Amino acid sequence: MINVLVIVGTTTFDSLIKVLDRIEDNISYKFQVSNGSYNVKYHSYQHFIENIEEVYSDFDLIITHAGAGTVYKLLEGLTPFLVVPNTERSDKHQLELAQFVRDNSLAKTCTVEELSTTNLESFLLSAIQFKRKTYLKDKFSLKEHIIFNW
């Protein structure tokens, strides 16, 4: 059984939840749905998950929107993840971050449409087995930057 956490952040991403909310023999989902209007039928869900970073290691895979905060936090961890940009948003910045992640081999990426037309079990297994490049976090101290430029 593949245990998958699906994260949409603080904005709705109903199309992602809807395409994954189906019965699969070997996949179990937990959805973080924000204030979405889609009613989850087959899996557990919460609107928001307190201290979400603490539960990442409980899952085999995390499917996440391409929100910068979530993606960069996942890059610092060990849990495999799949990035799906939320194109339901009025701005399209998530497409740029997903492209950066893909182009730099930091995680597997796809669209909602690709998820709806693929064999999910084999696709998710390939995301789990994806050998990503190591992400090196740049050290940044805003305090030092402000003092230096003051």
Rank of each mutant, 00 (worst) to 15 (best):
residue 141 S to I: 04
residue 84 V to F: 13
residue 62 I to E: 02
residue 91 D to C: 03
residue 134 T to E: 15
residue 45 Y to N: 08
residue 26 N to S: 12
residue 67 G to P: 14
residue 89 R to G: 02
residue 42 Y to I: 00
residue 37 S to L: 14
residue 65 H to R: 08
residue 121 E to I: 12
residue 40 V to N: 01
residue 17 I to F: 08
residue 136 L to K: 15
residue 46 Q to R: 11
residue 58 D to L: 15
residue 34 S to N: 10
residue 88 E to Q: 13
residue 15 S to V: 05
residue 101 V to H: 08
residue 140 F to I: 04
residue 51 N to T: 02
residue 130 F to N: 08
residue 61 L to T: 03
residue 25 D to A: 06
residue 91 D to V: 05
residue 51 N to A: 02
residue 65 H to E: 03
residue 113 E to F: 05
residue 92 K to V: 08
residue 130 F to V: 05
residue 135 Y to G: 00
residue 114 E to M: 13
residue 43 H to F: 10
residue 140 F to A: 04
residue 89 R to F: 08
residue 94 Q to K: 09
residue 148 F to G: 08
residue 56 Y to L: 03
residue 21 D to L: 00
residue 77 G to W: 00
residue 66 A to R: 09
residue 60 D to Y: 03
residue 99 Q to A: 12
residue 142 L to I: 08
residue 30 K to G: 05
residue 145 H to K: 12
residue 114 E to T: 04
residue 82 L to G: 02
residue 115 L to A: 01
residue 129 Q to A: 11
residue 79 T to D: 10
residue 70 T to Y: 11
residue 71 V to T: 14
residue 53 E to L: 04
residue 125 L to V: 07
residue 21 D to V: 07
residue 84 V to S: 07
residue 60 D to R: 07
residue 52 I to Y: 03
residue 18 K to M: 12
residue 91 D to Y: 01
residue 18 K to Y: 11
residue 114 E to P: 09
residue 43 H to A: 08
residue 142 L to H: 09
residue 47 H to R: 15
residue 117 T to I: 13
residue 130 F to C: 06
residue 21 D to T: 00
residue 148 F to C: 14
residue 103 D to E: 13
residue 115 L to C: 02
residue 72 Y to L: 15
residue 129 Q to M: 09
residue 70 T to V: 01
residue 109 T to F: 10
residue 106 L to Q: 05
residue 93 H to C: 09
residue 100 F to Q: 04
residue 119 N to E: 15
residue 32 Q to G: 04
residue 123 F to I: 07
residue 113 E to C: 09
residue 141 S to G: 10
residue 133 K to H: 06
residue 58 D to M: 12
residue 100 F to E: 02
residue 139 K to H: 14
residue 39 N to M: 13
residue 76 E to K: 13
residue 138 D to Q: 10
residue 42 Y to H: 14
residue 124 L to Q: 03
residue 105 S to V: 08
residue 144 E to V: 05
residue 15 S to I: 01
residue 59 F to T: 02
residue 17 I to N: 04
residue 109 T to N: 11
residue 95 L to F: 06
residue 28 S to T: 12
residue 42 Y to L: 09
residue 142 L to R: 10
residue 74 L to A: 04
residue 105 S to T: 06
residue 107 A to N: 02
residue 97 L to W: 07
residue 112 V to D: 01
residue 68 A to F: 14
residue 88 E to C: 04
residue 75 L to Q: 08
residue 89 R to W: 06
residue 145 H to C: 13
residue 94 Q to N: 06
residue 110 C to T: 07
residue 37 S to R: 15
residue 68 A to N: 11
residue 38 Y to C: 00
residue 146 I to P: 13
residue 64 T to Y: 05
residue 82 L to H: 09
residue 86 N to G: 10
residue 106 L to C: 08
residue 94 Q to P: 05
residue 100 F to D: 04
residue 15 S to L: 07
residue 108 K to G: 00
residue 132 R to G: 06
residue 25 D to K: 14
residue 122 S to V: 11
residue 67 G to V: 03
residue 46 Q to P: 11
residue 84 V to A: 03
residue 90 S to I: 13
residue 124 L to M: 13
residue 143 K to S: 14
residue 148 F to N: 15
residue 54 E to N: 14
residue 65 H to S: 02
residue 95 L to P: 11
residue 136 L to Y: 15
residue 62 I to Q: 05
residue 131 K to T: 06
residue 16 L to W: 00
residue 68 A to Y: 06
residue 110 C to L: 03
residue 50 E to K: 11
residue 71 V to A: 01
residue 61 L to Q: 10
residue 50 E to P: 14
residue 109 T to E: 14
